[in-house]
Each structure stands twice: as structure tokens, then as C-alpha cells.
Design a protein around this nucleic acid. Structure first.
Length: 501
RNA sequence: GAUCUCGUAGCUCAGUGGUAGAGCAUCUGACUUUUAAUCAGAGGGCCGUAGGUUCGAGACCUACCGGGAUCACCA
């Protein structure tokens, strides 16, 4: 703070702080005994039995203060909401001499009784009042008014995206609706965790710092271990370690944790993001589709209280069953072409005829991917399992039991976005080694995102992994979907930002 | 990484090449049921940064810094 030049408002608050201390008032006391939240009082107070709330104690941040000479009203905000407090000079003369030293943003504690004002607002009449924390920086204050039609009008909202992300603590104070997004995020994750735990699957932790990275196609962040003098990678996926645990004899393991990918940032990408991966022994991807349907209904019930959510003009339903469609059938349906079994030249031709732009050196799989994302994805609004991908796109998925050249894989699309990814996991060690060797060749050929060959992982698979189904869910995107947010930055407390100039 | 766009008071924003503005917030005074409290007054600015054009730049030009959007890469 000494380096920071204070503006006039900050300077004045510092002076108030010293004035409070010089009057023997501790502006930062250690504890306060709080008995009620704002919401408990507002939702349970009744004019018939005011004695129920004749002795309450509330605490919160001053969001508005109206001084009227010998009496003062203030609105304080706690985690649940806001409530008005009322302080009279003749009842609290000592506190009242300091009332001019209080500002919006200060945190106070009030003991007293609940009453209803002449204007009908339930309020706390103070018998005791204490400053709990003096605020030294002014917070932006939005004013709200409800017009004759009942519409809420907000004046001077704190809306600058940059400031909101960089000073999220201020954003959370003055924009309560963003707090609801994060409360819902927490409920979604805990509902998911409870669902897995209730089924007996075990939450585990595996390395984030890894000597090799794998399990996805992406460029990693690189860091360095000083004592051992070697480079480590921040993981890009959880997959390979969880499979080692299945080899080790656990039959259901999951992990919810950050992954890191050193790539571009936009509305749906942040360099660190939260992934859930779960592996269940003796199951396949058909079983996993049933499980995912059940899981999503459970989460919707608990976090939303209903089995639908709104995304733009669409109402998305989580009622079973979700649509199940094979990838190549969807090409037929939405692009009007059968792309199954076409070679690279033929796919390039198909892309041109569909007006899908692809790089001239794109691989067959890149072309297929591009046609899918441009012609099919945006049609997949209601939850849809897209099944059976080409083997070249999925080096860790098991070959399809009946379809030549395809693997047993599904991606769950909702509102045009990929939300989950699942395989019947590849446990044939010979096939797995061949696939990773092919990736290594692509890598040598200049594909920076091709997977690195992890010999220890291959040895684990050679020890023997039982038939297993694996699932990954992008938690941030799921939260975006269920909270109606359009940017990943609005579901992350502290999204990655460039350093300030 | 590319393109477009934005950056003016603590916050939200006006600003026609010619003296830097408003509302809220802040300060002083009045006010014991107010609630966008009200009433009377006051202070507050490196106009993102650095160059350039011009008699004169917050505005026009260039570069840079930061944000947002779109695209590319990816989940």
C-alpha cells in the first residue's frame, strides 16, 4: 500500500481509520457473535409474533447508508442477502458519535430486535452496534430501483469485464447474481461427487506434475524441478494415471481436478480448466451412456431443481433417454453425404462440395473433424450421444466390436457443445503399443499435438487392465450450460488474465 | 497468432479540432421510520502510454499496453 498513491477517497478513509483508533475503537476486532442471516430474518419474521426475533445479531457489509440527523438507516449485505438496520442517536450515543466515520464497504455487527418500518420494510433496530472491519478502498455502488411495472432498474452497475475479473472480490460484493453462478457450480460438483461416492467409486489424486504428458492431444505447460534438474509437464489429462489404478486393482476411480493446456483462450477455453474423469472396470461405453443419463438427471435435480435448462432460445431437457446417434449417420443426416470409408482425397472433395474450408495439408481426420464441427455440431441441441469415431481420432479407445475401422467411443453434445467424452478403454496391449507408435510417427512428422509415447503406461497395460469404461466431463462447460453463462470466464472465480501493464 | 472495437473522475457514461462534463459515490451543513432518502453548498482529471499532424488534439494519424468480440488452435 505504501507504493500505491491514494486517491482522495482512500486518503480520507485512512484518516478515519486513525481517528477511530485515537478514540479507542478497534477497527478490526477478532470475533463477532452472529445469530441470524438476513435471509432467515426476512423469510421467517411475522408481524403476528415479533417476539420470535426480539433478540437477534446480524453482521454484514454496509451497502447503503442514509443518515438523517439523529437517526440512521443502513443496508447491510451478508452471504444470503441484504437487510436494513436502524440506529438512533439517543439509544446508542457512543456509537453514534462515530457514525460519520463509517462508509459504504465497512463491515458492521448489529444486535437488536426486528421490526417493520412505516414503509413496510423488515429491519433490525439496533440495541448494540460495532464496527467489525474498516474498509480502506471504496467499492463501486450500484443503485437499484423497481419501476411502476415491477422491472428492476440498475444504475451505475459495476460492469467493466476487465475490472470484474481482475477484482473478483469486488465483483462478488456488488454483483450478487454472479455469486449465484458460483454457488450453483459448487452444487453441481458436489452432486456429481455424491453420485459417484454413493455408487462406491473412489475419489483419488494423481500427479499434476508429470515427467511425460498424455491422454489428450494438446500442447503442455513445461516447468522445471530444480533439485533433480529435469523438466516436468503440467498434465493435459488425467487418463493415463487413472488407468494405472484400474490395472492396480481398483474397480472404480474418479478424479476432479485442473488440467492445463498451453493453447489459445476464448469464450470456451481457459489455460487451466477443471476436468472430471472416471474409470469403471468391467463396463463398456453402452453402460456408460446409461450412467451419464442418470448422472445428469441427478445433477439437474439437485442443482437446478428441475430437469431442464435454458440456453439462448432453446429449452434443454435432461429427461431420459438422450438421443444416441452414430457419427457417420449424423454426417448423412445433416450434411447429406456418406463419408464412411472415404480416403483423404475423397474427404477433401466432400469438404469442398459442402463449402467447408480446410487447410490444404489437413489430415483425413482433421477434415472429418472440420466437417463435423461446421455441419453437424450446431444441430445437436438436445443431449445427444455421438457414437463410434474413426480409430485414427482415438488412440486410447478400444476397437469397435463389429464396425471395422471405428472405435467404441461417444461424445455427449448439448447445445452444440461437447460436454463429455467416453471410450470403452483400449486394454489390448499390442494394439495400444501400435497406436501410440503411430502417434509417435505423427509427432516426428511435425504434429506437436500427437501423443507422446509413455513406456511405463504401456507396461501397465501389458500387466493387464480389465475391460473398462472411461468418461471425462468438462466441468466448466457443464457449469456454463447449467447456469446459462456464455463465457468460461464467468464460471471461473479467477480466469487467466494478462498481467496488468 | 490475425482482424475489428473499446480505454475520459472511485463507478456508469456524455464530449461537433477551440476553457474538462453529468449522475451516483466523496466532503461540509440541515434532518429521529428512510430506502435511488431529501434539501443547500464544495472538492475531485497525466482524457491508457509514447510519438506525430495542427496556430490549437480527449477527438485526427502511427506504434505500444490492456480489455471485449470474431477467427485460427483446442476441450
Amino acid at each position: 500500500m505504501s507504493q500505491h498513491s491514494r486517491n482522495d477517497q482512500e486518503q480520507r478513509r485512512f484518516e478515519e481509520l486513525h481517528e477511530l483508533r485515537s478514540r479507542g475503537i478497534d477497527p478490526y476486532p477478532h470475533v463477532f457473535e452472529k445469530t441470524h442471516s438476513s435471509l432467515e430474518i426476512l423469510s421467517h419474521y411475522s408481524d403476528e409474533s415479533p417476539e420470535t426475533f426480539s433478540d437477534v445479531s446480524v453482521a454484514g457489509r454496509i451497502m447503503a447508508i442514509r443518515k438523517m440527523g439523529k437517526a440512521t438507516f443502513a443496508t447491510i449485505q451478508d452471504q444470503q442477502g441484504r437487510i436494513q438496520i436502524y440506529v438512533k442517536q439517543d439509544e446508542l450515543p457512543d456509537f453514534y458519535t462515530c457514525i460519520n466515520l463509517l462508509d459504504i464497504g465497512d463491515i458492521v455487527g448489529i444486535k437488536g430486535y426486528v421490526f417493520r418500518t412505516r414503509m413496510g420494510e423488515i429491519s433490525v433496530h439496533a440495541r448494540e452496534a460495532a464496527l467489525l472491519t474498516k474498509s480502506l478502498r471504496p467499492i463501486p455502488i450500484a443503485k437499484e430501483e423497481t419501476d411502476a411495472d415491477g422491472n428492476k432498474i440498475v444504475y451505475d452497475a459495476f460492469s467493466d469485464k476487465e475490472l470484474r475479473y481482475r477484482n473478483r472480490y469486488v465483483d462478488l460484493i456488488v454483483n450478487p447474481e454472479i455469486r449465484h453462478v458460483f454457488e450453483k457450480r459448487s452444487m453441481i460438483i458436489s452432486a456429481m461427487r455424491r453420485y459417484f461416492d454413493d455408487h462406491g467409486w473412489m475419489e483419488v489424486e494423481t500427479p499434476i506434475l508429470q515427467p511425460l504428458y498424455g491422454g489428450a492431444s494438446a500442447r503442455p505447460f513445461i516447468t522445471h524441478h530444480n533439485a533433480l534438474d529435469f523438466d516436468l509437464y503440467l498434465r493435459i489429462a488425467i487418463e493415463l494415471y487413472l488407468k494405472r489404478l484400474i490395472v492396480g486393482g481398483f474397480e472404480g476411480v474418479y478424479e476432479i481436478s485442473k488440467n492445463f493446456r498451453n493453447e489459445g483462450m476464448d469464450r470456451t477455453h481457459n489455460p487451466e480448466f477443471t476436468m472430471m474423469e472416471i474409470y469403471i472396470a468391467y463396463k463398456d461405453y453402452y453402460w456408460m451412456m446409461d450412467m451419464v443419463e442418470d448422472l445428469f438427471q441427478t445433477i439437474a435435480d439437485k442443482a437446478l431443481g428441475k430437469r431442464e435448462t435454458t440456453a439462448g432460445e432453446h429449452v434443454i431437457s435432461f429427461e431420459q433417454p438422450f438421443r444416441r446417434a452414430k457419427m457417420f449417420d449424423l454426417f448423412q443426416e445433416y450434411a447429406g453425404m456418406n463419408l464412411r470409408g472415404l480416403n483423404r482425397a475423397e474427404l477433401l472433395q466432400a469438404a469442398r462440395s459442402l463449402n467447408v474450408e480446410v487447410a490444404s495439408d489437413a489430415t483425413a481426420m482433421k477434415i472429418l473433424d472440420e466437417i463435423f464441427s461446421q455441419k453437424v455440431e450446431h444441430h445437436l441441441i438436445q443431449p445427444t450421444f455421438v457414437m463410434d469415431y474413426p480409430v485414427e481420432m482415438s488412440p486410447l479407445a478400444k476397437a469397435h466390436r463389429t464396425e471395422e475401422g471405428l472405435v467404441e467411443r461417444f461424445e455427449l453434445f448439448i447445445n452444440g457443445n461437447e460436454i463429455a467424452n467416453c471410450f470403452t478403454e483400449l486394454n489390448d496391449p499390442v494394439d495400444q503399443r501400435k497406436r501410440l507408435e503411430d502417434q509417435a510417427l505423427d509427432r516426428a512428422g511435425g504434429d506437436e499435438e500427437a501423443m507422446v509415447l509413455d513406456e511405463d503406461f504401456l507396461q501397465a497395460i501389458e500387466v493387464g487392465m480389465p475391460p473398462t469404461a472411461g468418461l471425462g466431463i468438462g466441468i466448466d462447460r457443464l457449469v456454463m450450460l447449467l447456469t446459462g453463462q456464455e463465457s468460461i470466464r464467468d464460471v471461473l472465480f479467477f480466469p487467466t488474465m494478462r498481467p496488468e501493464a
